[in-house]
């Protein structure tokens, strides 16, 4: 499934979608950046409540397919701009990380 298909199917709020065709396979949940960096696999959906600017760099370096901000956390405008510039798909949902993972689990 692509990042855009996942976003549309589950009604995530797209904040930045510069790479809509990026494949999404598997999922990683975490807020500690080094942990995500070392453990998330390429093309994973990364679910987090961390919303500061550094998530864009971590997502870019770890090659995640999409970053899903859980519980409607609001990122700074600079995060959205940076995500757009770095080719990071960034979406938001009111669901918790657990609920999000359960929901998308059949499709990734």
């Amino acid at each position: 499934m692509t990042a855009l298909q996942l976003t549309e199917k589950f009604g995530f709020e797209p904040l930045a979608m510069p790479a809509p065709d990026h494949p999404v396979n598997g999922c990683y949940i975490g807020d500690l950046l080094s942990w995500v960096m070392g453990r998330a696999q390429a093309d994973n959906a990364w679910i987090t409540i961390m919303s500061n600017i550094n998530i864009a760099a971590v997502a870019a370096l770890a090659d995640t397919g999409i970053v899903i901000l859980a519980e409607n956390v609001t990122p700074d405008a600079s995060v959205i701009q940076t995500a757009q510039a770095k080719g990071i798909n960034l979406v938001r949902t009111p669901l918790t990380a657990y609920e999000t993972a359960v929901k998308i689990s059949q499709d990734i």
Binding site: D31, L33, S34, W35, G38, M50, N52
Partner: peptide
């Protein structure tokens, strides 16, 4: 608070 300081930096550097 920014998500750093997990104590995984050097271990990750060694692992990778």
């Amino acid at each position: 608070a920014l998500g750093f300081g997990a104590g995984m930096g050097l271990p990750n550097m060694k692992r990778y």
